[in-house]
Amino acid sequence: MTVDIACAEPAFLDLTLVGLDQIPRPGEERLAEDFLRSPGGGAITAIGAARLGLTSSLVSPLGDDGVGMMLRSMLADEGVRWDGRMVQRTPVTVIMPTDGDRAMATFDPGEGVTGAELAAAEPRSVVLSIPRLPLAPAGARTYVSVGDLDARALAGGELPDMGGSRALLVNEREAQLLTGAGDPERAAAQLAEVAPLAIVTLGPDGALAVGAEGTVRVEGVAVEAVDTTGAGDLFAAAYVWADHWGAALEQRLRWAVLYASLSVRVATATAGAVTLRALLEEGAGYGLPSPVRQPAAMKEDQ
């Protein structure tokens, strides 16, 4: 059955140590105030999209282990369809947020989605990284991302042609790694040479887009950041949601910036991913017109 969005990036179980006063140095132990478990990686975008009323699928391998069982249960609770295959082990990330940023350590067994699995989900839109771009199903709107590891691996090399994609979404650090440019404006302009629309997120300073639809920059939303984990994944979820409803570029960026900004106020990305009703109420306070053009079932805030 067709879904509005399929997320093809690996899903992790995020293990978050909350309340650290700073990241431990080598040989040093520090105490956290709490310990949380939540879906991570591609599951963050899938859950964010589902909370915004899109039908959502995670097409990512999950292990036949306790971690995988937990993630599949969490996805089902969110109304996210899992269309991946069963493998031996599930990826895990340990996250240590502090001072508005975070450090992460990850175990990834290296299993990835296949083109056949992604096509079988029948997505209208798909979110996947640059290395997985060839797996995008024909006819699906393709939104391309890149993580820190991939950005470092691709740094200094020739980027693939992303002309068939809808947009490339990267953060400022990733953009500068990919291009070698010294500022986000030049980095976005260079990325727009290989993608029809290059979007660079700027953290608290908003986002910048360069491409066929022109050059647009939107301001950030002032919030107190507790945990920035997954903010880029939720930016992608809200951007696809706004594009799904036909919003203009500036409005897509503003909704995505708002959604990502609201998420960093609490620990873990999924705890910060607000529902459609909450996002529309927040957007109204910023003068954002709703892009939803027909009645949609809005989930009650969780």
Results as ranks from 00 to 15, higher is better:
Thr2Pro: 15
Thr2Cys: 02
Thr2Phe: 03
Ala8Phe: 00
Asp14His: 06
Thr16Asn: 00
Arg25Ile: 02
Pro26Asp: 11
Glu33Ala: 08
Arg37Thr: 13
Ser38Leu: 05
Ile47Asn: 02
Gly53Glu: 12
Ser56Leu: 11
Ser57Phe: 07
Ser60Cys: 03
Gly66Ala: 14
Leu71Pro: 04
Met74His: 09
Asp77Gly: 15
Glu78Pro: 09
Gly79Asp: 15
Arg81Val: 13
Val87Lys: 06
Thr93Gly: 10
Val94Trp: 02
Thr106Arg: 10
Phe107Ser: 14
Gly110Gln: 05
Glu111Met: 03
Glu117Val: 12
Ala120Phe: 05
Ser125Lys: 10
Val126Phe: 02
Val127Asp: 12
Pro131Val: 10
Arg132Thr: 08
Leu135Trp: 01
Pro137Phe: 01
Gly139Tyr: 10
Val144Ala: 06
Asp150Val: 08
Leu154Met: 07
Met162Trp: 08
Leu168Arg: 01
Glu185His: 07
Leu202Lys: 04
Pro204Gly: 14
Gly211Leu: 00
Glu219Val: 05
Thr229Gln: 00
Val240Lys: 14
Ala247Glu: 03
Trp255Ser: 07
Ser261Trp: 01
Ala267His: 00
Thr270Asn: 13
Ala271Lys: 05
Gly283Trp: 11
Tyr286Ala: 11
Gly287Pro: 11
Gln294Phe: 14
Pro295Gln: 13
Gln302Val: 14
